[in-house]
């Protein structure tokens, strides 16, 4: 059965690239435009991976991670953050919050997919 990945990013073109890459690799994709929207997509269905931007309007990625970690049904969901190399302090805060996987932007689709393979069981 196809695994489901939630992508959270305020940039529509990043969402398109992520969704296209993931769908072409056979994953189900749900998308959200910011942290708040991301949380609203956690409605009880199993999510196998969350890929999220850090800087977003309304609710940033790290706040979202903290909130996810408090949700009984989602607290163990692997979370992969998209970051730029200038966000080292964010990366530390994010790892403290429980998001251990980080991909540095820019990245090629192959890098994304290999990260996903390490985080989601087929």
């Amino acid at each position: 059965m196809a695994k489901t990945i939630l992508i959270v990013d305020d940039s529509s073109s990043v969402r398109i690239v992520l969704a296209t890459t993931l769908k072409s690799a056979g994953y189900n994709v749900i998308d959200a435009v910011d942290g708040e929207d991301g949380l609203s997509k956690l409605t009880g269905e199993k999510i196998h991976l969350i890929i999220s931007d850090v800087n977003m309007p309304k609710m940033d990625g790290i706040t979202m991670v903290k909130k996810i970690k408090a949700l009984p049904k989602y607290k163990f969901t692997p979370i992969c953050m998209l970051t730029t190399e200038s966000e080292e302090s964010k990366m530390k805060a994010g790892k403290m919050a429980g998001a251990k996987a980080w991909i540095v932007k820019p990245f090629q689709p192959a890098v994304l997919l290999s990260a996903v393979e390490k985080l989601v069981l087929p």
Binding site: D10, S11, T84, P106
Partner: peptide, 25 residues
């Protein structure tokens, strides 16, 4: 403003526009 600049850099990076990324950085 920070977020806008950040997003500009991030999305440019996604498409491999390194010149844009390095300046925007």
């Amino acid at each position: 403003l920070f977020r806008v600049v950040h997003t500009l850099k991030g999305t440019s990076g996604m498409f491999g526009f390194t010149e844009v990324v390095s300046f925007t950085h």
